[in-house]
């Protein structure tokens, strides 16, 4: 009996490299790595599906714009309101515009834009490609001698990577507008001096790092959505799971990347 048990365990050990779950994890990481590598291989290889890239860019913008406008505006107002009391304690409420603009451009706008896009765009990519996968549309592209990766993945990842910085700048603009309305109502600051003091503290590095950061976020959202969609299995259930996993994975990665990039930028600054 005991011998049997031991034997069974031995067999298990032989079938897996480390443990079944870890093996699964590492082979997943490897597949993801190959998936990402394929993007850079295909990116510069013609044909370039420019029309499809444009369509996807439009989709990304169109999907997230309403929610981003609303959230950006509210964040601008709320953040201004919440920061005022502590600044007033030091008699420094004139610093409000610069505080807000730093917070918005360095952290809030990139993060809020990325999270909203992960929810709206990432889930949409995951679900769309997932349903194409389970209804064999991706296989159909492959057997008709076209490259589904090129047409579906490269275009979408390119679109999210290019559009997120644009959306981020838009979010920042809207948030600053919200903030200005609040500041104007309370401190009677003119738009001119609001902008002057707001932008005086913003450096080129701030803007550059935010743009760079949101490109990474966009890339993450696109890859996560496409990867989950391409690996969807088991019918319609799998489509929902792919959409969900795309959002969870990209949100998690966005926070991890944010942490890393902040460290790097602070070291440069």
């Amino acid at each position: 009996m005991a011998f049997n048990l031991k034997n069974k365990n031995l067999q298990k050990v032989r079938r897996h490299l480390i443990s079944p779950r870890l093996d699964e994890f590492f082979s997943g990481v490897y597949r993801l790595y190959k998936f990402i590598l394929e993007f850079f291989k295909q990116l510069f290889r013609p044909p370039f599906e420019m029309q499809e890239v444009a369509r996807q860019c439009y989709e990304v913008g169109y999907r997230s714009l309403p929610l981003i406008s609303l959230t950006g505006f509210i964040i601008g107002i709320v953040f201004t309101k919440q920061s005022r009391p502590s600044l007033q304690e030091f008699g420094a409420s004139s610093w409000l515009p610069s505080l807000i603009s730093i917070a918005v451009i360095r952290a809030l706008a990139p993060l809020v834009t990325a999270l909203i896009a992960a929810g709206k765009v990432g889930s949409n990519i995951g679900a769309e490609l997932g349903s194409m996968k389970v209804t064999e549309q991706i296989d159909a592209m492959e057997v008709s001698a076209t490259n589904p990766y090129k047409f579906l993945v490269v275009t979408r990842v390119l679109a999210t990577t290019l559009m997120l910085p644009v959306l981020m700048m838009y979010t920042a603009l809207v948030a600053m507008m919200g903030s200005y309305l609040n500041v104007h109502a309370n401190e009677l600051t003119s738009l001119r001096s609001f902008l002057d003091s707001g932008f005086s503290t913003i450096s080129f590095l701030d803007i550059f790092s935010s743009i760079f950061k949101t490109m990474i976020f966009g890339f993450t959202i696109g890859i996560a959505g496409c990867y989950q969609g391409f690996n969807a299995t088991q019918g319609t259930q799998g489509v929902g799971r792919a959409a969900n996993a795309a959002v969870v994975a990209s949100m998690f990665m966005i926070f991890v990347e944010e942490m890393i990039i902040v460290q790097i930028v602070n070291a440069i600054r």
């Binding site: 349903s131 194409m132 209804t135 064999e136 549309q137 296989d139 159909a140 592209m141 057997v143 008709s144």
Partner: peptide, 10 residues
């Protein structure tokens, strides 16, 4: 290759 469920691009 004609697919079981047609697999037209939706």
């Amino acid at each position: 290759f004609s697919f079981q469920n047609s697999a037209l691009y939706d």
